[in-house]
Amino acid sequence: MIDSLAGENLISLETLSQTAMLEVLDHAELFAEVNSRTVRKVPTLKSRVVASLFFEESTRTRLSFETAAKRLSADVLSLAVASSSVKKGESLRDTIATIDALGIDAVILRHHSSGAASQVARFVPHVRVINAGDGQHQHPTQGLLDVFTVRQVLAERSGTNARESGSELFRGLHVLIVGDLRHSRVARSDAWAYSRLGAEVRVCGPGTLLPDDLSAWPVTLETNFDDALQWADVVGVLRLQKERGTGSLVPSLDEFTASFGMTKQRVQRLRSSTLITHPGPMNRGVEIDSWAADHANCLVERQVANGVAVRMAVLYLALSGARVEGEINE
């Protein structure tokens, strides 16, 4: 279990303690303040090189990470896999070795294979590895920004200071994660983030889209979606991952929407305080209705905005550990 992200890799939220999660959230609050200034940039990671390696499609996560790195004044090396030697058959190990030879301090990795991030961490132990999504395993920064956004909203509602509240606002919070649980790395990260902070997490979805074994997840399975919606304080809607063959696991998209979609009717029946999150990109009309997506309790845009602050916190912590011994001077 990791108790502080300082100088550590961020591979999975399963091994991150509550203390370490709160450390990230609290730093993210400070970086959110930086992002609200006229000059939205601090020199913290000047001369550090951060490589962003995306072996899988992504616009928002990649832009979010690169914006975060740039606001910390780090140099960003960005590998466009489509036009790189990966297309010529270069192995992950060789690609990493090549980039490492250029001199990097951290790598942000998105890969279609589960476990790719921890593998890279073994290849280059002197480089900090930030997992930006590996196969169907984890997407830790998404999990952290989801809990960050929910804590921020709950703190605003109750008029408390988010930093001072610690994990208090999550105690007894009812979180329902719904949709394509089988393929979702976001669900795996969210489940650990919410439960470790003290929330109760339930999941719901069609049988074909459930993972083979839920026993290792810190969640309970809910079979009646409409009852669960009344129970929930937060509904985490997952994207139907058509690119991972989800389409063949449901009879039809309409059928899925009718049974497990956040339709207008379902959203109207929610308690007025219930929050809706979605990791994006949204399939409007499939897992979430367009009207629901633009509802005031739907936090999608705030999640994107907070993503930069949370990723700044992760990069800052991972890269500012005591790798070189030295005296502290006032």
Partner: peptide, 13 residues
């Protein structure tokens, strides 16, 4: 000034 220090890697966060 934590984000402006010149010794970010020299000490624990």
């Amino acid at each position: 000034v934590a984000f402006y220090r010149d010794d970010v890697s020299l000490h624990p966060v």
